[in-house]
């Protein structure tokens, strides 16, 4: 066994194993988004998630169905219907539909607050 062979066996093979293991370790997480860690800054735009409406108003019925089970909330018309479908990203707009929403006071508000 000359020097070249010795280098190949005792340096090349371990190096190859290390490279293979490193690739197997790093590759699956290469395109993963950074996980949120408590205390780090949150520099994403605000986003507001809403549930799907119970049943989207069916086309062709004119939104006048009153069948039992057709909708928990009743069907919405006009800007309210649009408001139930839109997922508001970013700062919610203050004009338009919000004035209609503000017409009905929510009464005494409850809830809870927590920090971590």
């Amino acid at each position: 066994m000359n020097v070249a062979e010795a280098l190949l066996v005792f340096a090349g093979i371990p190096l190859a194993i290390v490279v293979v293991l490193a690739l197997l370790t790093l590759k699956p997480g290469a395109n993963r988004r950074p996980r949120y860690k408590p205390g780090q800054a949150w520099d994403h735009a605000p986003i507001w998630y809403e549930p799907h409406p119970a049943h989207a108003p069916a086309a062709g019925h004119g939104g006048e169905t009153h069948a039992i089970g057709s909708s928990v909330y009743g069907e919405r018309h006009g800007s309210d219907a649009a408001a139930t479908h839109a997922v508001s990203a970013g700062q919610p707009h203050s004009g338009g539909g919000s004035t209609a929403h503000a017409a009905r006071p929510a009464g005494p508000l409850g809830g809870a607050r927590g920090t971590w």
Partner: peptide
């Protein structure tokens, strides 16, 4: 608000009857 480490739950009057504080 992950940046401020705050979570707020707000219930309206109708929801508050079924979801006490």
């Amino acid at each position: 608000s992950p940046g401020q480490r705050v979570v707020e739950v707000v219930t309206g009057a109708g929801a508050g009857r079924r979801l006490p504080d």
